[in-house]
Amino acid sequence: MTLLENKSAEIPAPREITTKPRISDQIFRGVVTLGGMASLVILGLIALFLSIKGFHILSEEKFSFITESRWEVITDENGNLAESNLGIGAMLVGTFLVSLIAILVGVPIAVLSALYLTFYARGFVKKFLISLIDLMAAFPSLLFGFWGFFVFMESAEYWAKLLNKYFSFLPFFDVPAPIFERSPFIAGLVLAIMIIPIVTSISREIFDQTPLDRVQAAYALGASRLTMIRAVVIPYGRGGVVGGAMLGLGRAMGETVAVYTVLNVVYQINWQTLFGAGGNVASLILLKFGEAGPYEVDALMAAGLILFILTLIVNAMADLLINRFGGKGR
């Protein structure tokens, strides 16, 4: 009796059960969360600083900065600004034109090769091809640009001439003068080659995730490979593939060096894809930066801000499509 009583008196209060992490963990979690915020901070800073430099241009030029297509800065003898007409309309049109060609040409090829890699290639060949395509995705744009200029241009020019010969009744295959070199068509093809590896690997990953039971159910019902892909893989992976294409679009829109080397950057709105004149916003920045005065630099910052926002929107849509609808079908 007494023994028990004594003991009960000695039992310490039970340790408080808590989910509160220790100090070391709290510090650790704080540091990691802070590091995790870095992408938010950096993206915010990019928007902030480009706006600080470029906002007064946007407010002075208003909407004409997007719609107009002139780039004239007139300074008086003291170097002060006298008059300016700045607008990136032509370059925006060029950006969309070139990346549209890249998407139209690149995505079908990429999806077909992803189908090949997922459903036809086997064993060593499959592994080898996948690493080759991943390697190609890591090639710098400089390499694509100069390869496009020195090697690819010749063939592409010939194709452009053929297209023009047989399809010149279509307005976008017509040319005002027979200059086929350095056209948006060729730049678009080079960009298509650049985005094929990216779109291929994303599509391949999506196709790989197709549930095996559905694939085998389709085969068990007597589907051939074609009907299986049409009935199971395409509905399942459609969203993801579209997302991958958007990602490629974002890449193509922001491309600087490859477009600058291949395309003849001319400041005019040009819808005729085979004619050797065009441009995009990024190549405009590179072209004008070297000789730009302070006011022009601010205008280039504004152009950069618009490019940044555009690519951000495209990437956001791509991300949404891949994560919401990628790998979800009927």
């Binding site: 990019i46 600083f49 974002g250 922001g254 600087t256 990024a282 950069g304 940044f308 951000l312 990437n315």
Partner: peptide, 14 residues
């Protein structure tokens, strides 16, 4: 993901 889509020239401008 969005950051990986930032055009390289924009990084330079920033």
């Amino acid at each position: 993901q969005a950051m990986s889509g930032v055009p390289s020239i924009v990084a330079g401008l920033f």
